[in-house]
Structure formats: C-alpha cells, structure tokens
Design a protein around this nucleic acid. Structure first.
Lengths: 157, 157
DNA sequence: GCGATGGCTGACGCGCACGTAAGGTCGCCT
DNA sequence: AGGCGACCTTACGTGCGCGTCAGCCATCGC
C-alpha cells in the first residue's frame, strides 16, 4: 500500500499510545491479554495501527462509564463480525439494549450526583468566604493533606 | 417527637433495606465497617433509621457513577459537620470540584457510548430482520447462552 | 566495548468490594 | 425441649485491573 506519503506515521509504538491516552504499557498488554486488542508485531515489538488506536479509545471510554473489560470486548467484537451467527447477534443486541438502559439510568445518577456535589460546593464556599477566603479556588495539592479517617486507605499520589 | 403515628415503621432491618435496594447484608456490613453508615443496635441486631436509608441510597448512587467508597465517605461526612475545620472544607471543596468535572466528562462518555451501542443495535436489528426475525426484541435469557471467549470470565446470573 | 533506552515475557503482589463458609446468639413456634 | 429463621462475628477466598519487579534482547550514541 503506497499510502505512506499521506499517512506519515500510520503506526504507533506502545509508548506513543500510552502518552496520547494517559495509560501505561502494562495496561495495553493487559488488554491484549484479554483479547481486546491485537497489534501487529515487528519482531517482538508491538505495532499499533489506527484501527488499534480506535479500539483503545473505545476501551478507555467504556472503562470510564463503568463497563467491565469483558463487556467492552463484546462490543468491540461486534465491529468485527458483520455477518456472524444470528443467535449470537440476537444476544448481543439484547445485551446492548440492557446496557443502554443501564447507561441512561447511570446518566441520571450522574446528574443527581453533580447536583449533590454542586450544592455541597456552594455550601462550603459560603463557609470558606467567612473563615478562610484565601483557600478558595485552590487545587487540592495546594492546600495540604490531612489525617486519614478510620478505615480509609491511601491511594497513589 | 410524637411522629410515630405518621411514620408507622421508622426503622428497617438489614434485610428490608437489602431487598429495597437490591444489595446484600454483607455489603451493608461492609459499608458500616468502612464508616459510611452507622445504624443503631437492638441488642446485637442492626436497626436502620430513615437517615441511614438515605445514606445508603447516596452510597449506591455514588457507586453507580464510579465513586470509590472512600470518596463517598467524604461526601457523606460533609453533611454531618456543618462547621468543621476550614482547611478540611477547602480540600473537600477542591475535591468535589474535581469530581464534578470528572462526572461531567463521564456523562459525555456515556452519551458517546449510548450512541455507539444504539448504532450497533440498529445494525444488528437490520441483520436480524433478514435472518431471524423471531429473535427480535427477546430478552437475553430467552435466547440461550454461548461459548465463553478466551480470557472471558463468568459472572453471577 | 558499554551504558542508556525501549520493548519483551513471566510471575508475583495489591487494593477494592465484596462472597463465602463456619460457628454462635436470640426470639418464637410447636 | 427442639428446631427454625434471622441476625451476628471472624476470617479467609475471589475477581478485576492493573503495578511492579526480575530477567532478557535489540539498538543507539559515545
């Protein structure tokens, strides 16, 4: 395919994709392990195409909305088959409809959560205006950590 | 407060809440372990008030939108303090603002995912119309399970 | 020649959110 | 008295999504 002139770099290293999408090589290899993505190889090195990149994007999007990797895999498979067995397709469709309903309910949850948080924020804001206006609008790291609560675990960072 | 007449059953057993919200006793005890909820006791038995029930509802909502239990705990704490230490409040507020941004981006992801799934569904639908119109609109269980994919795990159900 | 860099393959470890026995307590029914 | 059903605690097990470490090429620049 002499498309090299039009696509100056139509393939990506594992690092490039990781940088672009903010994930780790380990994660990509993990997805490959699970069959979600299957890059070509140049010798031993993974070579990702635009298609792989698109799949990765869908994977990460799916993750962010709370889909399990196995479910994401099913969705990705759909784009491969096209004329697969009918009962399979019926199952997929039914599952997808379920998923759509779940996602829509999840969106409602998000709206409610945003409302809750926003109300909480404005409550805190009015308090801070009275007590410590210097701390308003500061990012988390600029303020300082605090003591852990009982049963609370520390996370990375 | 002589409200007993208006609230015929102002407390709940662990089972009642579990049935109402579709979770397990183990989960509720786990949340209690983490300090997210603190029901009264009648002897050894847990007795949940309406307030506990409301907290549980927030917990489950938070979970569905991808919050960690520790984060949910922070949010719940907010409703208890009212006049807590200022730096704490500033941290909370900053975290909440972050969370709001994350949730809004998550909502965009959901919209995209719904689009993807809906397009996929209609693709499948048109295929099924040609091949197996009898399978249209069937729920998942009515169709039949299939072989697991490599690396795919079974879940409850 | 040689370290730095980047990628690879196992394989073990971890935090989270519970599941799952195993065994004990309590009130009620027969 | 005996058995049940609902609840309890303690404690170990599990699935997921990676992190991390060890050990091993290949290549690049000096």
């Amino acid at each position: 395919m002499p498309t090299e002139l039009r696509r100056p770099a139509r393939s990506f290293t594992i690092r490039q994709l990781c940088q672009e999408f903010g994930c780790t090589p380990r994660a990509l290899r993990f997805y490959e392990d699970k069959g979600l993505i299957s890059p070509e190889r140049d010798g031993m090195n993974r070579v990702y195409s635009y298609k792989d990149r698109a799949r990765l994007q869908l994977i990460l999007r799916g993750k962010r909305v709370g889909l399990a990797l196995s479910e994401i895999g099913e969705i990705l498979d759909l784009y491969e088959l096209g004329d697969g067995c009918a009962t399979q397709n019926a199952i997929s469709q039914a599952k997808f409809r379920e998923r759509i309903r779940a996602l829509e309910s999840q969106r409602r949850d998000i709206d409610m959560a945003v409302d809750v948080l926003q109300e909480a924020c404005s409550r805190l804001e009015s308090q801070l205006k009275q007590t410590r206006p210097d701390l308003l609008e500061q990012p988390v790291e600029a303020i300082r950590p605090r003591r852990p609560r009982p049963g609370e675990m520390r996370r990375a960072g």
